[in-house]
Design a protein around this nucleic acid. Structure first.
Length: 426
RNA sequence: GGAGAGAUGGCCGAGUCGGUCGAAGGCGCUCCCCUGCUAAGGGAGUAUGGGGUCAAAAACUCCAUCGAGGGUUCGAAUCCCUCUCUCUCCGCCA
């Protein structure tokens, strides 16, 4: 949510910032609503003040055994006035709230201009894509040779875009998860949390998935619960309605969860393989910081996600999203894209964003600076990493001519000492 | 799932038959005084959000908030209804 004060006093500036991400802010409507609001709120509050004063007078008179009848005159008219003003203010407020909730976060000044992903800026490329002396396979074909990657079974159990992993691949996915969690907790100083995989409306509103993106979520029939699309939702909501002491910041939390996305609107995209599934595993990094620290924390958090790729020996690049490609709640985002030899391109495997106070305002997540009134915190998060896509990346980057897969050194301890996965005999 | 109890400010906790209650008291915290250190003592202050006057700040003032939402009333922390959550006991259970 954007600062309503800013929306009221400087809608023009805001409109310019939002225009960078292709969002047209209706300044005239805002100014009209604001004018109405001002009148309505003043009128209502004046009427309330009068009601309070009269009630007090009546109470005082009654206590002294005085005459009340004269004081009661005109109360009905006042009550009617009060009700009318209340209706008007509520109507204005409802329109305002709806409008405000639909506004995306304005991009940071240093976010590159641009309309869509084609305008994103590659900041750096790390590692060399491996060279091959045989025809490379993608992870689906490799999985077919190894066994243990079964989309047919996923379709039977649930439907399209679900997979069943077994044996070596199930172990490899678990190894990746454990490796990431250990790295972030033991080396990067994050605290691991375990959270519910269902979230209520308040939580999803807090991080910005609602009200705009309900279509992308799985909803539990008959209940106001949604399957979480990312651990960002439950973990960030830990600080909802909280006032943290300054000393409690920054908070660095890491959480492994399955993620559920209905992928509405993605029909026909990335239908092959593990890239775009309805259910996938992810290790998520979340930070809650003081406002002045969030920019630095964003760089650090991105580095923490990069460290996973580096230790796995995977080539990747870091991309600054342009204003037009930013997510709804993000002020600035770096994507990490891993090299996938099977498709010969870099694919997003992590997205690291600084939300500034946008989520915090929705969450009412504050902290108490020394000697000052409470102020909103800043929130950040990033995938560290998406496990399913990392699994695909490892399979493709560590494949051998016969369809076997070497285990990256960092993962060997998590694989019970196994150093390769061998194609099955069948 | 059944029965009962509860939800008040940073924390604990009081709120009598609805009226001057944004809320006693305590703890904590901040500032000041006193005390040669330490301990103890005295005084003052200490919720959040929003509006108005204003270019803005300060200041003044108004409104809202005692789990959430409705209702009754001139007036609700106090009465009524719905919901949420917590606790206790019973049942069931990984």
């Amino acid at each position: 949510m954007i600062d309503p004060k800013r929306l009221r006093t400087a809608p023009g500036d805001l409109a310019r910032a939002l225009a960078r991400r292709g969002f047209a802010l209706d300044v005239a409507r805002i100014e009209a609503l604001e004018a109405r609001r001002k009148v309505a709120q003043k009128a209502l509050e004046d009427a309330q003040a009068e009601r309070n004063a009269r009630a007090k007078a009546i109470g005082r008179a009654k206590a002294q055994g005085g005459d009340i009848a004269s004081l009661m005159a005109g109360q009905e008219a006042l009550a009617a006035r009060l009700a009318a003003h209340e209706v008007e203010l509520q109507a204005v407020q409802a329109q305002w709230d709806e409008l405000a909730a639909a506004l995306p976060n304005p991009p940071d000044d240093d976010v590159p201009d641009g309309r869509d992903e084609r305008d994103n800026v590659t900041l750096r490329t790390v590692g060399e894509p491996p060279a091959w002396d045989f025809a490379v396979r993608d992870h689906v074909d490799i999985g077919g040779l190894l066994g243990g990657l079964d989309f047919g079974a996923g379709a039977k159990l649930a439907g399209a875009r679900y997979a069943v992993l077994s044996a070596g691949l199930a172990l490899l996915q678990r190894a990746l998860t454990q490796f990431m969690l250990d790295l972030h907790t033991q080396v990067h100083g994050y605290t691991e949390v375990y959270v519910p995989y269902l979230a209520n409306r308040d939580s999803l509103f807090g991080t910005g998935q609602l009200p705009k993106f309900e279509k992308d979520l799985f909803k539990i029939e008959g209940l106001e619960y949604f399957l979480i699309p990312t651990a960002e939702v439950p973990v960030t909501n830990l600080v909802r309605d909280a006032t943290l002491s300054a000393g409690a910041l920054p908070q660095r939390l890491v959480c492994h969860t399955p993620c559920f996305r209905s992928e509405a609107g993605a029909a026909g995209r990335d239908t092959r393989g593990l890239i775009r599934q309805h259910q996938f595993e992810k290790v998520e990094l979340v930070q809650v910081t003081a406002p002045e620290d969030s920019a630095r924390a964003h760089e650090e958090l991105t580095g923490h996600a990069e460290a996973v790729l580096q230790r796995l020996g995977l080539a990747y690049r870091v991309v600054a999203l342009c204003a037009g490609d930013l997510g709804f709640a993000a002020a600035k985002t770096y994507d990490l894209e891993v090299w996938l030899p099977g498709s010969g391109c870099y694919r997003e495997i992590s997205s690291c964003s600084n939300f500034r106070d946008f989520q915090a305002r929705r969450l009412r997540a504050r902290y108490r600076p020394r000697e000052e009134r409470p102020a909103l915190v800043h929130t950040l998060n990033g995938s560290g990493l998406a496990v399913g896509r990392t699994l695909a990346a490892v399979l493709e980057n560590y494949q051998e001519a016969d369809g076997g897969v070497r285990i990256p050194e960092a993962l060997v301890p998590y694989m019970g000492g196994l150093t390769t996965l061998r194609p099955s005999e069948s």
